[in-house]
């Protein structure tokens, strides 16, 4: 059987031929995409800094709680002891790659009380952005906060609950954290969120990576100050 020939298009004029090309068919899509892209870029240019500032403010607000714990932060606020937070960028060289970490150094009366590290990694659905509080020598975790995540609502997004996050406080980080299904006992074990093992593992691996990358540079920084 012969394949059916497509009906011959009228190709009388140049205009008609132009209309039947791909560009002639799709020009509206292309024009709209260009216009929309340009307007979105403009919006991002104007609003991007505002959104970044919002995130930075949220980070700075969280620092006392992440280092001193909720109760400790309240107590410090009552006694008018304000942590001095100093943002800095730490560059870690890994092979021939450089990794940049935003680190917030918290000092109280001149002594370093801890570090808050802003870092991100791949979650189950999308990038997860974390704030991790460490003690000055990066040996224990003092707190965890999830800045941004798009995990599955109802399952993976339980990583943002205080109930799940609080188990990280006081965990040792010299040995990498390990996710277990239930009943974490050892000081480096973390209970996974039920039904969201991948989200839980993403978080612990982000923490492990940040801790191992930063322990050297940050402890050295303390010694230097002393």
């Amino acid at each position: 059987m012969k394949p059916v020939e497509p009906p011959k298009l009228e190709t009388s004029g140049l205009l008609q031929r132009l209309k039947n090309t791909n560009i002639g068919q799709a020009w509206l899509v292309l024009v709209l995409a260009l216009c929309f892209g340009a307007s979105l870029a403009a919006v991002q240019l104007t609003l991007g800094p505002v959104i970044e500032q919002n995130k930075l403010n949220e980070t700075l607000q969280k620092v006392p709680e992440l280092i001193l714990g909720t109760a400790g932060a309240q107590k410090a606020a009552e006694q008018n002891q304000n942590l001095v937070v100093e943002p800095q960028i730490i560059v870690v060289e890994k092979g021939n790659r450089k990794i940049f970490y935003s680190v917030y150094k918290a000092t109280l009366n001149g002594a370093t009380t801890g570090w808050v590290v802003k870092t991100a990694g791949q979650g189950y659905a999308d990038k997860i952005e974390l704030l991790i509080g460490f003690n000055p020598t990066i040996e224990t975790i003092t707190g965890l906060f999830v800045l941004d995540q798009k995990e599955t609502p109802g399952l993976g997004n339980k990583i943002i609950t205080q109930k799940w996050r609080k188990q990280f406080a006081k965990k040792g980080i010299i040995q990498p954290l390990v996710v277990v299904k239930k009943g974490a006992k050892a000081s480096n074990e973390i209970d996974s969120v039920t039904g969201a093992t991948i989200s839980s593992e993403s978080i612990t691996s982000i923490i492990n990576k940040a801790a191992s990358d930063l322990r050297g540079p940050l402890s050295a920084n303390i010694l230097k100050v002393k």
Binding site: L32, A33, F36, S39, L40, V43, L47, I51, N54
Partner: peptide, 16 residues
């Protein structure tokens, strides 16, 4: 395309 553009606008405004 149109809907996605307006949604992104709304999303950015809310975040800001």
């Amino acid at each position: 395309l149109t809907i996605a553009t307006f949604v992104t606008l709304a999303d950015r405004f809310l975040a800001a």
